[in-house]
Design a protein around this nucleic acid. Structure first.
Length: 372
RNA sequence: UCCUGAGUAGCUCAAUGGCAGAGCAUUCGGCUGUUAACCGAAGGGUUGUAGGUUCGAGUCCUACCUCAGGAG
């Protein structure tokens, strides 16, 4: 149970880094699916929102939910990955990370405690522990050292979070989404979404008791023994959910799958298990079948903005469609006849190609919606 | 009719007399906890035409053609 509602799993979370799932308006995001139901939960980013417009400003504006008018659950990434991936000048110590803003070069310092303060202020339904993502490839020794830092930071994140988290944050002015309750999140493997704005009375009261949650992040690079150690160490902290981080950073798919499998077996099945940063549509399907409950990825939206669409061939296999290709110039068919999304129901490949080639913003939005 | 300026890739333009290039466009590829409506590759030329000078001419000279501006 999250402050802004129930999330049915397995679930894919669109990435909305700067309080925006790029090119997709919130009202559309809520109902993009074939069944008229859209994203259940989105991801926003601590690092980016801290730098701009600033978490304190967002808190004064009523939190991310009210700020961006998103009434459903939201998860915030802790900023650890951003510090790793885009801050050229950074200094990691046991205390935290000193880094320079990619916007203006100004110096900043993130500790686990500070990351928690920012995520709490943003009003995240689910916050993530502040972790360090090790580069790939990295030696076993380097990976283990980094993993140890992540564990220490996870404990500090939890200690700080537990004494500061909010009840139903910043949502006084917005009605929480009312939807069918399903407490067995990890067990629910149905792909049918059951969000319902007309569910029974009393749902609001139940939601009001929900607090922000903090998930742990398993690291350990590409070493199964370290993955096991990391998972066990985090499970000892008794967090409400666990993520598998540090994957899909350049390693082969087989390695990703292997690391996920070798981590899942040490994570409790009755809590959400979240693989961060994946993936391709077929990967999402595969990992969900392996028992992963949550995934997020920029791919559907970024690829969409870049003209790469995902569709299924006659055999149901996922295929890539580069919509700018000449062959679609007068193709009156939908992206994917079996898709049923609001884009496939209405627009042709030829039109989408035209929009993309002409640089029309609508094309970016429609491509993103289809991929999501 | 005369004067001036300009003619180089599909377009807009570079290139001290010394290997003819860029941007855009075109065609294709890439994208995994977003610095990304982004990044990359490829194709594309008798440098307006005809002569001349020179070891060597997109570049200098002559004539012509086309376009723009000006004068009459």
């Amino acid at each position: 149970m999250l402050p802004h509602g129930v999330v049915e799993t397995p679930v894919f979370m669109p990435v909305g880094t700067a309080a925006s799932v790029k090119a997709v308006e919130q009202g559309v995001l809520e109902k993009i699916g074939a069944d008229g139901v859209g994203a259940q939960i989105i991801l926003a980013n601590t690092y980016h929102l801290y730098l701009r417009p600033g978490h304190e400003s967002i808190a004064r504006m009523g939190g991310v939910h009210r700020f961006m008018s998103w009434e459903r659950p939201m998860l915030t990434d802790s900023g650890g990955f951003q510090v790793f991936s885009l801050s050229g000048l950074r200094k990691v110590t046991a205390e935290g990370v000193e880094f320079r803003s990619h916007l203006d070069g100004s110096k900043h310092f993130f500790s686990p405690e500070h990351s928690m303060d920012v995520q709490i202020a943003l009003g995240a339904d689910i916050a993530m522990v502040f972790d360090e993502c090790v580069e790939t490839p990295a030696s076993w020794e380097r990976t283990r050292e980094s993993m140890g830092l992540t564990h220490a930071w996870a404990q500090r994140s939890k200690d700080h979070f537990d004494s500061h988290k909010h009840l139903v944050p910043w949502s006084e002015g917005l009605q929480p989404q009312k939807r069918k309750a399903d407490s067995s999140t990890a067990a629910a493997k149905s792909t049918a979404f059951a969000l319902d704005d007309n569910s029974e009375e009393g749902q609001n009261d139940e939601l009001k008791g929900a607090t922000q949650s903090l998930f742990g992040i398993v690291q350990g690079g590409m070493y199964a023994d370290l993955r096991k150690e990391s998972a066990e160490r985090l499970v000892e902290m008794e967090l409400p959910g666990y993520a598998i981080g540090g994957l899909a950073v350049g390693e082969p798919r087989e390695v990703t799958r292997e690391m996920i499998a070798r981590t899942l077996e040490f994570l409790p099945k009755d809590k959400p298990r979240y693989v961060m940063g994946v993936g391709y549509p077929d990967e999402i399907e595969e990992y969900a079948k392996m028992g992963v409950d949550m995934m997020d990825c920029v791919l559907p939206t970024r690829a969409g903005r870049h003209g790469l669409l995902f569709a299924r061939d006659a055999e149901g296999k996922i295929v890539r469609m580069n919509i700018k290709r000449r062959e679609y110039a007068e193709d009156s068919g939908p992206i994917d006849a079996a898709c049923g999304c609001m884009v496939c129901a209405r627009y042709s490949r030829a039109y989408l190609r035209h929009l993309f080639v002409a640089g029309e913003a609508l094309g970016l939005a429609l491509n993103s919606v289809h991929n999501l």
